[in-house]
Nucleic acid binder design. Sequence first.
RNA 1: CGGGGCGUAGCGCAGCCCGGUAGCGCAUCUGCUUUGGGAGCAGAGGGUCGCAGGUUCAAAUCCUGUCGCCCCGACCA
Length: 490
Amino acid sequence: MAKNITTQEKDYSQWYLDIIKEAKLAQHSPVRGCMVIRPNGFALWENMRDELDRMFKETGHENAYFPLFIPKSFLSKEAQHVEGFAKECAVITHSRLINSENGVDVDPTSKLEEELIVRPTSETIIWDTYRDWIQSYRDLPILINQWANVVRWEMRTRLFLRTMEFLWQEGHTAHATQVEAEEETRKMLEVYKTFAQDFMAMPVVTGVKTASERFAGAIDTYCIEALMQDGKALQAGTSHFLGQNFAKAFNVTFQDSDGQVKYVWASSWGVSTRLIGGLIMTHSDDHGLVLPPRLAPTQVVIVPIWKNEIERTTVLSYIASIRKELTDAGVRVKLDDRDNFKPGWKFTQYEVEGVPLRIAVGPRDAQNGNIELARRDTREKSIIPNENLGTFIPNLLEEIQSTLFNAALARRERDTHAANSYEEFKQILDEKGGFVYAHWDGTEETETRIKEETKATIRCIPFENPYPGKGKCMVTGNDSDQMVLFARSY
RNA sequence: CGGGGCGUAGCGCAGCCCGGUAGCGCAUCUGCUUUGGGAGCAGAGGGUCGCAGGUUCAAAUCCUGUCGCCCCGACCA
């Protein structure tokens, strides 16, 4: 058992923080609610980013970059949007410091004519720009993504899950027709689902948000929802059909092939460093982080073992060919031949850091033509011959990838229930947690009441319902078209 | 914004009640022995005790203020 990691059973929240600390993913910064993403965490983010970026480009998108600062007036142009973000905007009021007895002070003479907002999201400045880019239907669609940081002044923060500044991507697309914009919204949700499941090995439910959970300024918000090990849901990504709301607010029109001037249709979609929190809470255990091989910065770590200089030379030369074979096969391999840590220490450390496979090689293995192989996911250890590792190891990494997904899927299915009455609903939430499907009459009043009484929210109205069919609302008894997905959430 | 906790060596903490040479563990450096699941011994370096006032011969310790961070709840990706 790894030292310094609180068990999940004892305190899940503390366990989560311990994992981040011990796996060196991130640390708190001197600024409240902000974090330093350490090399281990950032390498993970880079792999996620690269894969998503590839998927965005395969679906026809281009990257661009828009400013960090947004004129205050832009925020006020779309009423719903303003209302949604007004409470959490950082505002820049001055441009200069002056020396003072206290060190430095804000120079009162440097007050800005128009205050600037640090972007909480970029719809406004992007749609202000799109107005210049779009005249004709021939200018459409515009399929843009940007990788950026954004700031939302949160009351309460948690590393990765909710920080005041976070990294994300935001896609912003402009289309000639409603159908096309809606298709784009759904297409990108599918991209997120594929990424979450195939790369993060994190099963997700796709669906549409209710009005109260909808993105400010959207007509519809689609989401991927994942279920964490402690039975709480995590919104892992969102995709919004924005209708013509921003086009109207920023007067973005085009002349269509029929000669008429029309407003442009829009979508936006994003995932953030929050995904790292979801990854942690999907796979990791009391021994530390567990990373899916497809995203792990290091897929295989090789730990050599020796007693003296002769053994060291023998073992390291034996390892050299193994390392080359794996590297040639496209495996991300790290050799840790440091002499100031003992093998046992390294074993534990790489386990804590979540490296999917560990190969240990000592004099005996070099002598016998073997390697010792340890899997992080099952923690099984075996001695195998040093043969065909260039095909064996990649295959094993893929097996680990699917084992992790299957385990996460089995856990989600175990923790997914259907409630046929409000009493049963509350009982499931209190005793088991997890996803709970239940009938709801479709009104905001009922939704609010359920939230106030149980702290559970409607995560989504799922596209694929495991409990299809009409029924009666568990609270009011009114008609319900289908069960919707409830959970307590992060 | 409420409730709780904490600021003392790079990290984790004790010391504070009862004022009197600033300590412990880990980490770091040196040397030797070690290396198949978080090594051992010996030695060494490292501090304006969050900040500002006050009381006192004397303040990490008592008093007053102030700043910051974390955790738990009300809003949100």
